[in-house]
Design a binder for these strands. Structure first.
Lengths: 339, 339
DNA sequence: AATCGACTGACAACCGGTTGCCATCACGTG
DNA sequence: CACGTGATGGCAACCGGTTGTCAGTCGATT
């Protein structure tokens, strides 16, 4: 595509094209959106004029009359959480490929902000992708009833969702720690309103029971590096020799605090993070963590949403997609200290 | 605000309210947007009905008739670059406070994508914030002529801009390295299309001349951690004992590569990054870098843009804002190795 | 009491498209 | 040659608001 300069004059409308070609505006509309409905010669004249006038359809007007906005809202609790970077990139790529615009909203980890954003977006978006919703099951179901929606990391019956299966990986993480000789493990938990957190803890306590090992729950902690200091102190005090941490942000914060306190990682304490975010590979020591295909999850969510929007093309749309997760072992885990 | 459940029925319009109150739609419109224009009793009846019907104005329709979209486009070259996280958060916060919606677009470091995004946004946004534009000066000026716009880190006459003054900090960085005894310094450069890169190099070569020290230019390299490997190898080969690097992403990548190669940082080679992004404080070793008030830059850009949009309120709107930058010394710089 | 103007509400046009419906026309068929 | 048919283009209503204009009401002024 040639680099069209942005002209300063008023953008062209279908009326301008119509006047230039001596046809009715409705014919222009058809020539551009339902080409078969118009004689080929007229159509070509119109298309040429459209190019000449550098015509771009007004998306507002289009949305108003057709009811389709061509936009999809993407809600995330915290834009600055690197976890969501990859998610956002995934949705952005896939939406763009399908000709949709992404409306990104930061819900600030608040159910109220989230609810009002959804309300707002009912008019301005065709569908929604909701990351780690803080809404109640009922509210999410209601939202789903009002408009096409795909949840990410939120498991509610009848709400289409992409689930990153970190609970399954917690078993792997625990086995990894057991194989290193750890006998007392702590789970450093995230926000209470996070369903991922609950699911992960459930899976972990079940797994620990099966394996006959003690796992204590610490927290909750906010999913930020700054929370890592408090988490680290609590972990040390708990007497555990290894921690499975809600996410890498907290884990990285713990790493820093532990170093300050002279607690060696992994010598004195092993740390397992979750998500394998940007930074997990170059922090000190590099973090053993549960790797998630986050960007792919974003792409899958978009695909599922578009299938809802356009059932014809979507075909056999899945309403639930579970993304596998695996443990990436780096240098923050090692044999338990000998007592 | 109460948590309004999202209802499944068709959203209410001013016509619904009008019917309920037995007035004309135009009166409803005025009651809500020009309250003074309507008798207080009618107004209150209408407002009550609006609340009861859970009315939300249709932003598309509003945009179409009023010409104001209530949205601002924010263009960044790469969403997954942590530098832009902070910028995005800054713009998001400030825009939201002013009642605007943020339309985030990733231009993929491409001038073509950027130009077409701007073209697209002319209709759907009231103004634009363009981060690190890849456009030519002329194209950017033309865009500015077509719609309100604030550039970030792009210095073009007559284009309002927020400039993060990293060039000034390069002098500090160089002095820091000189004081540590370094005599051969390399500048690891970023993309050729980046104006920040050019400005930084200019400032650096000027400063080096004044101080009578040799600075060689390496690169260009893409602003990604993956480029760090190539950059590190080139830097080692150049014989320099210290590098000032285009940004922290490349610098962090270099850190990793240098460790792999057994080159000690800062023992054998000192590294200075730029931007102080997420991760610069916890990489290994923690990075000496030029800290920028990035989130603040985003907020300032929004303020400047809103002043353009609403000259009445904006008052004495500045058309250029320079954000100071300072050197944050961490552990990636130390005395030059004795030969 | 007549005049004036402020206040208030309704009507209708408009923003830029989409779409149902109808009129026209050319063509093929019986 | 009359008729049916499909292709093609125009008209007008509509999406949900905004806004200019006008008419009616009412109190105040002279």
């Amino acid at each position: 595509m040639a680099l069209q300069p942005v002209s300063a004059s008023r953008p062209a409308t279908i009326h301008d094209i119509a006047a230039l070609c001596g046809v009715a505006p409705s014919t222009v509309s058809r020539a551009l959106s339902t080409p078969d409905r118009v004689n080929i010669r007229t159509r070509e004249r119109i298309q040429a004029a459209a190019v000449e006038l550098n015509y771009t359809p007004n998306s507002q007007a289009k949305a108003l009359s057709s009811g389709k906005t061509g936009a999809v809202g993407v809600l995330v609790p915290d834009i600055t959480n690197p976890f969501y970077f990859d998610l956002i990139r995934g949705t952005q790529l896939q939406l763009k490929a399908a000709g949709y615009t992404q409306l990104l909203v930061d819900t600030e980890e608040s159910d109220e902000v989230e609810a009002s954003a959804i309300q707002q977006l009912r008019k301005s978006a065709d569908g929604l992708i909701v990351g780690a919703s803080r809404l109640t099951d009922e509210a999410l179901l209601a939202a789903r009833a009002a408009m096409p929606l795909v949840a990410i990391n939120r498991d509610v019956p009848d709400v289409p969702a992409v689930i990153i299966d970190t609970p399954a990986a917690t078993g792997q993480a625990l086995d990894h720690l057991i194989s290193l000789g750890h006998t007392k493990v702590a789970y450093v938990s995230g926000p209470v309103s996070s369903q991922s957190n609950a699911r992960r803890w459930d899976a972990l306590s079940l797994a620990s029971e099966e394996r006959g090992i003690e796992v204590v729950k610490l927290g909750p902690f906010a999913p930020k590096t700054q929370s890592g200091a408090a988490a680290a102190d609590t972990a040390v005090h708990s007497g555990a020799t290894a921690c499975i941490v809600f996410n890498d942000l907290i884990a990285i914060g713990m790493l820093q605090r532990l170093r300050e306190r002279g607690v060696r990682v992994p010598g004195d304490m092993s740390i397992v993070g979750c998500d394998d975010i940007f930074g997990a590979d170059f922090c000190n020591p590099p973090l053993t963590t549960m790797s998630s295909p986050i960007e792919q999850a974003g792409r899958v969510a978009v695909t599922m949403l578009l299938a809802q929007l356009d059932p014809l093309r979507g075909g056999g749309a899945r309403s639930r997609s579970v993304m596998p997760t695996h443990l990436t072992v780096r240098a923050s885990t090692a044999a338990a200290p000998s007592t």
